[in-house]
Design a protein around this nucleic acid. Structure first.
Lengths: 240, 240
DNA sequence: AAGTGGTCTAGACCACGGC
DNA sequence: CCGTGGTCTAGACCACTTC
């Protein structure tokens, strides 16, 4: 009688949501026990395998931890390491008002190295724009983005002024961003960047070259970013 | 008749191993289709759920990718992003002879900030040592490490000269290292570091503050590293 | 239409943890 | 000892992709 899951969302997801909700509103705190597989199966009137599925994949997402013979327990609050976030998302997470000024917007056709990183033909037309990022009215970072002009038609300076690039791509163009590969090093501020970031020239900056991929594995954005190292610390988690 | 898994390893793991073996020896190449759940179930004489379990968790490990309606396919060779590696491991991966000079070795008892990062009492005794790292006879990085003197008795300068810190901890002290959290920024080289690294003072350096944890979640090493940014690029993958 | 993965059932036995 | 998670069965229907 699999009629109870006819409402669209799978049963195991409804079980997960019920648990996540209780974690979110504080009814379940880190270390607290979650119902056992058998209890969940009874409560939600599903089979053991389904209740199990719910808990196993909650564990994979780091929300709970499971110990054989003991039970399933709420995991310590999630630390968002290695999360690909848009500038706006990062800033709102720190309750700083994100601001962004588009300094430059153009079409380029002769940037073969960057085209290669985006898996485009060497002389492909790409949209390029430079943005100055500010937080609390202080310049913070300088970013240059490249995207295929063909894949993202109608991309305009005015749109970027208003809206986050990430939400634009995900909502207007229906591209689901999945991950980014980054190369990070340090470099002295050149006179132009120094002026825009309002720092002395040759101040050390974090330099990040980023290729952002969407869910189907295709590279879609190349970003070259310069970050004031007095205002920006990169947090990374590595695994053995 | 769950007798076939009586040999110790679970059936789903035996199925995984059989697939991984064929990937490793080239019988299955990236993009090739793996048997469907139903085929695997028939071949290995298990139920669908068990064959499914094998494939689902192979996918979670990034070895295959599954597409509904299409099949399960061998994933492109794994790129080792965000891997915590010792200096020796990194260098041998690039076939550079790793060298390391211990510049300083001492016991400190008054470094409360660092003790706190290692979850130790504020005035805990810690071993501190500084190492200059070289690759191809060129100085490359400067690292200062802190460990609890109590947890790692008998740690000596002479041992460090010979052996990698990671293998020492994992083999002699039986600590399984699990992950590291890193804070990364850029900083100008102070005169002392500049001299040791043989670069002009105020050259931008990558600065990394690392807390390395072992499998039980306990922090065990604190490392402050300065890396020549002309010789070192950090590679990071972030996920959405 | 045939074949694939996604969800699900209603049970079962085992290994392990804590009492 | 009892309850927990770990493994497993032998089926079922659905949604999706490919042809």
């Amino acid at each position: 009688m699999p009629a109870s899951h006819r409402n669209g969302t799978p049963a195991y997801q409804r079980i997960q949501l019920a648990i996540l909700k209780r974690i979110e509103n504080g009814q379940l705190r880190p270390g607290d026990a979650v119902e056992s597989e058998r209890d969940l199966a009874r409560i939600h009137r599903v089979s053991l395998m389904t209740a199990r599925h719910a808990l196993v994949s909650l564990e994979r997402d780091g929300m709970v931890s499971r110990r054989r013979g003991a039970g399933t327990f709420v995991a310590p609050p999630k630390i968002h390491f290695n999360r690909l976030m848009s500038f706006s998302e990062q800033m709102s997470g720190r309750s700083l008002s994100p601001q962004s000024r588009v300094l430059h917007f153009s079409i380029v056709e002769d940037a073969p190295e960057i085209a290669a990183r985006l898996a485009l033909p060497a002389r492909a037309r790409m949209v390029r724009f430079d943005r100055l990022r500010l937080g609390a009215d202080e310049p913070f970072a300088l970013e240059t983005c490249y995207l295929s002009a063909q894949q993202f038609p109608g991309l305009q300076r005015s749109t970027l002024q208003r809206e986050s690039l990430f939400s634009l791509l995900e909502q207007k163009y229906g591209r689901k961003l999945a991950h980014a590969d980054e190369e990070i090093d340090a470099t002295p501020a050149d006179p132009h960047s120094a002026h825009l970031l309002r720092i002395p020239r040759d101040t050390p900056l974090l330099r990040m070259r980023q290729v952002i991929y969407c869910a189907d594995g295709q590279p879609v954005i190349y970003v070259l970013g310069l970050y004031r190292s007095d205002r920006h610390t990169l947090l990374v988690r590595r695994y053995r």
